[in-house]
């Protein structure tokens, strides 16, 4: 800043809103043009690299990959949601042993990478085959897909438990007391009064968790589950064509954006009564 500008600024008035071509506007337009340029470049590259034979050969693989990604995430989220209830209960328990165990569970699954957990289940449990056979569980862990479901469910249960706990605790204590004074017992209070309010709070974190799982599920490719990412790597390693990654990027972005907008829409619907 030059000295003359300093004196101009020292007059006590906030700066005027910018008009015309301010520096910010030039920068902003420049960046938007850069993005547009990259977008056009991407489309142009995909068109120029279009290869019908390649597409026919690999497109079915991508479709099945999307199916595997979605079913993996879907099943894990549901199983995780069921598991998260006792864990969230444990986290809120006044019994120090139960609370400690629940805390350790959550800390372990949130403190270590999902990839390490997946390896631990797939290759780690694989080395306990005789023991697993003896208890009749080997058929389950034999399949890589099941191992992925197992690891992902335990992982997302930890995150969902924290979401659930946060949401229930966000409901003011007075609501419990009010319900108690009306003679509702604890379970009724939870179901009729607390949960409806908690779910509004929890919706967005739940949505984010689903999105994180979709993105996180890409790692199953490394334990031989051929989901969208796995198919992409396989395609790339056979064709060495970079567009295989670009298509995967576009598909993932579409899935995630669709979900995000769906969550926004649901949130707007269920909070209609809160709008003034």
């Amino acid at each position: 800043m030059s000295a003359s500008m300093q004196t101009a600024d020292s007059v006590e008035r906030p700066p005027l809103p910018p008009h015309g071509w301010s520096r910010q506007r030039i920068l902003g337009y420049g960046l938007v043009v850069l993005w547009a340029f990259m977008g056009i470049g991407l489309v142009a590259y995909l068109i120029s690299a279009w290869n019908t034979e390649l597409f026919q050969k690999y497109a079915p693989g991508y479709v099945s990959g999307i199916g595997i990604t979605l079913s993996l995430v879907g099943i894990s989220i549901v199983v995780g949601a069921i598991l998260s209830v006792p864990i969230a209960y444990g986290r809120m328990s006044r019994n120090p042993v139960i609370a400690g165990l629940a805390y350790a569970y959550v800390y372990f699954f949130r403190g270590t990478p999902l990839l390490a957990q997946a390896f631990l289940v797939y290759y780690g449990f694989g080395s306990f085959r005789p023991e697993l056979d003896a208890v009749g569980l080997w058929w389950f862990f034999r399949e890589a897909f099941n191992c992925a479901i197992f690891a992902f469910s335990l992982n997302t249960a930890a995150y969902q438990a924290e979401i659930l706990r946060g949401a229930i605790q966000s409901v003011p204590k007075g609501q419990w007391e009010g319900a108690a004074s009306l003679g509702l017992h604890k379970l009724q209070t939870l179901r009729k009064i607390i949960l409806p309010q908690a779910l509004i709070v929890a919706l967005r974190p739940y949505g984010n968790e689903v999105i994180l799982m979709i993105k996180g599920s890409a790692i199953v490719a490394i334990i031989t589950v051929y989901d969208l990412m796995g198919i992409t790597r396989l395609t790339y390693s056979r064709t060495f064509d970079f567009q295989s990654y670009l298509w995967a990027a576009i598909i993932y972005l579409l899935i995630v954006e669709t979900l995000r907008h769906a969550i926004d829409w649901i949130e707007r619907r269920i909070t209609r009564h809160l709008k003034r």
Partner: peptide, 12 residues
């Protein structure tokens, strides 16, 4: 960058 899986970003 929030929509892409981290692993995919890494490969890209």
């Amino acid at each position: 960058f929030r929509g892409l899986p981290e692993l995919l970003t890494l490969f890209l």
